[in-house]
């Protein structure tokens, strides 16, 4: 019975025409795959960049750069006025402002 069933289901040809028909229909996909494989082999040096240059990586780098810069700005901008204010206060509250001024003038 198995042999009879197999004979019933087995095509009456050697399969060459079928194989050629499949290859014809697959020619576009095979070409694209071949082109993709060739392109990949031509530019291996950039693969790491394609693999790692994802948006989250770029965003993380920008965030790190921002974190490094932002704390420096208040420190640099806020130092001078505070220093100036403390110097002028020292002059005004000094026990002998004339002496201080004289020393300053002398310099």
């Amino acid at each position: 019975m198995n042999e009879l069933l197999k004979r019933h289901l087995t095509p009456d040809d050697d399969g060459r025409a079928f194989t050629e028909a499949v290859l014809l229909r697959a020619s576009g996909a095979l070409y694209r795959r071949g082109a993709g494989a060739t392109a990949g082999a031509d530019a291996p040096a950039w693969e790491w960049l394609e693999r790692w240059a994802r948006p989250w990586v770029v965003a993380a780098l920008v965030a790190l750069a921002g974190a490094a810069l932002v704390p420096a700005l208040p420190r640099g901008g806020g130092w001078a006025p505070a220093e100036a204010a403390s110097a002028s206060d020292a002059l005004l509250t000094a026990p002998a402002p004339d002496l201080v001024l004289a020393v300053t003038d002398g310099n």
């Binding site: 289901l9 087995t10 399969g15 079928f18 499949v22 290859l23 020619s27 795959r33 071949g34 993709g36």
Partner: peptide
Amino acid sequence: AGDRDAFGALVARHQGSVRR
């Protein structure tokens, strides 16, 4: 990787069972 001969060999090898 787009090798036509390799794909053709696979088709030729398995076409009988797939068609059945």
